[in-house]
């Protein structure tokens, strides 16, 4: 299965939920937000949200700024 993550196409060997995918990227749920196909997915739904072929996944966090 292929998804677009942060503008790059990546291949996933297994079917993953959004929560599993976030963790697989070395990120914790804290302090991040995720959007799939430009729609924000609330954290409470991550464990049930199954990624599918072709989905565009973006993960955001807070960085320094004025």
């Amino acid at each position: 299965m292929k998804i677009i993550y942060q503008d790059h196409e990546i291949t996933l060997d297994d079917e993953l939920t959004l929560l599993e995918f976030v963790r697989s990227q070395g990120l914790s749920e804290q302090g991040v937000a995720a959007a799939v196909n430009e729609e924000i997915i609330p954290k409470r739904s991550w464990a049930e949200f199954r990624l599918a072929d072709g989905m565009q996944v973006d993960i955001f966090n807070l960085v320094a700024g004025g």
Binding site: Q6, I59, F60, L62, V63, A64
Partner: peptide, 28 residues
């Protein structure tokens, strides 16, 4: 303190700022 929201940078390390600011009691 203000901060910006950005896509996670998978290639460059950036220092964690949220947790240390919360630890010193700053409103984000």
């Amino acid at each position: 303190a203000t901060m910006a929201v950005k896509r996670v940078d998978t290639e460059h390390h950036t220092d964690e700022i949220v947790k240390p600011l919360l630890e010193i009691g700053v409103q984000l």
